[in-house]
Simulated assay, not measured.
Amino acid sequence: MSTQELFVAAARKCLSAGRKSLSVSQSLDLAAQVSALDLGLKPALLYDSNGASADQVQQYLSSLQSSQLVSKSLLTLDLNGNTLIVNPVTARLNVEQLFHDGNAAVIDVCHSLEKPTITDPLREELKSTTRDLLLLLRELEHLKEAEKPHCVREKSDEWNLCTVFGLLLGYPVAYWFDQNKSFENCLSMTPLTVTTASVTWQADTTSHRCCLFSFSVPTALLEEMQSKLENWRLCLQERFQQQNVLKDLTVCQSTVTLPSVCL
């Protein structure tokens, strides 16, 4: 079987939800994303292609590792019922760089605010979450190849998962809100600038276009965020040039305004 066929076969075998398997296109998207993780282009991937469980995602990852399609450094994480595939080293380095080098941008989108506001990434709630997250990632770095997903439940009960996902997924901007007051946000009908980074995955003789990153910034704050976004783009470009599996990196922006935004 070709590399492409092996990736697709593993996805369709391991990740069925009910009677429904992933399509070939979805399987190729996932293959490109996992390859980017293994190359260190992405720190983590939040699995949301269908309703497959964390155990099924672990089976998929183990299958790829057994076939030597990806390294054994990748791990499956069950974070309060949310399934991620993580490159622990890349994720830790990314979080450390964001905070220690002052490149983190956190936007407060509490429902009580009239409009989104840049907040201090070192405010106590965020510092505490970041410390816990770094401890978790250092713990994951020392794990050997796992047969089961690594579950994080009690530790993460107080985390704002929206912020944690932003950090884990390698975004230069993360949203935060006071979840003790409300899980709603003030982004309704707020113009958002969406940044996407896409690549072409060349597997055997077939190429597949895939979106690696997609995140938003309130357009009104774009000018203040510009240097952080540019730094993120340059760092991504530098990492991209150090590999030859993924081709044709394209970073672009568009603006959307939505009646409601789910975080």
Rank of each mutant, 00 (worst) to 15 (best):
Q4T: 11
Q4A: 09
Q4V: 09
E5G: 00
L6D: 04
V8Q: 03
A10P: 02
A11H: 01
R12N: 06
R12V: 01
K13W: 00
L15S: 04
A17Q: 03
L22T: 09
L22E: 08
Q26I: 04
L28S: 03
D29W: 00
L30M: 09
V34I: 14
D38M: 06
L45N: 03
L46Q: 07
D48C: 07
S49I: 10
N50S: 14
G51M: 08
S53V: 04
A54T: 13
D55R: 14
Q58E: 09
Q58F: 01
Q59R: 14
Y60Q: 02
L61Q: 09
S63H: 05
S67C: 07
S67W: 11
S73R: 10
S73M: 02
L74Y: 04
L75Q: 15
D78G: 05
N82Y: 07
N82A: 10
N82F: 06
N87V: 01
T90I: 01
N94K: 01
V95S: 02
Q97W: 05
L98D: 04
F99G: 02
H100V: 12
D101K: 13
D101G: 00
G102K: 08
V106C: 04
D108P: 02
S112M: 02
S112T: 13
S112W: 06
E114L: 09
K115H: 06
P116G: 08
I118S: 01
D120M: 01
R123M: 09
E125C: 10
K127R: 14
S128C: 06
T129C: 10
L134E: 00
L136G: 01
R138M: 01
R138I: 00
R138T: 00
E139L: 04
L143V: 05
K144M: 06
A146Q: 15
E147A: 12
P149Q: 10
C151H: 13
V152I: 14
V152E: 12
R153H: 15
R153D: 15
E154M: 12
N160V: 13
L161P: 13
L161D: 08
V164A: 15
G166S: 07
L167P: 07
Y171A: 08
Y171C: 06
Y171P: 01
P172I: 04
V173E: 03
A174N: 03
W176S: 02
W176D: 03
F177N: 13
F177K: 14
D178N: 15
K181A: 15
S182C: 11
E184Y: 12
N185W: 05
C186D: 06
C186A: 07
T190V: 15
L192A: 05
L192T: 04
L192N: 01
L192C: 02
S198E: 09
T200M: 02
A203N: 05
A203E: 05
T205Q: 15
S207C: 03
H208W: 07
R209Y: 03
L212E: 11
L212W: 07
T219P: 00
A220Q: 12
M225H: 14
K228A: 08
E230F: 03
N231S: 14
L234G: 01
C235T: 10
L236Q: 06
Q237F: 11
R239H: 12
N244R: 12
L246A: 08
L246Y: 05
T250Q: 09
C252N: 12
Q253M: 07
T255K: 12
T255N: 12
L258V: 01
V261I: 06
V261H: 05
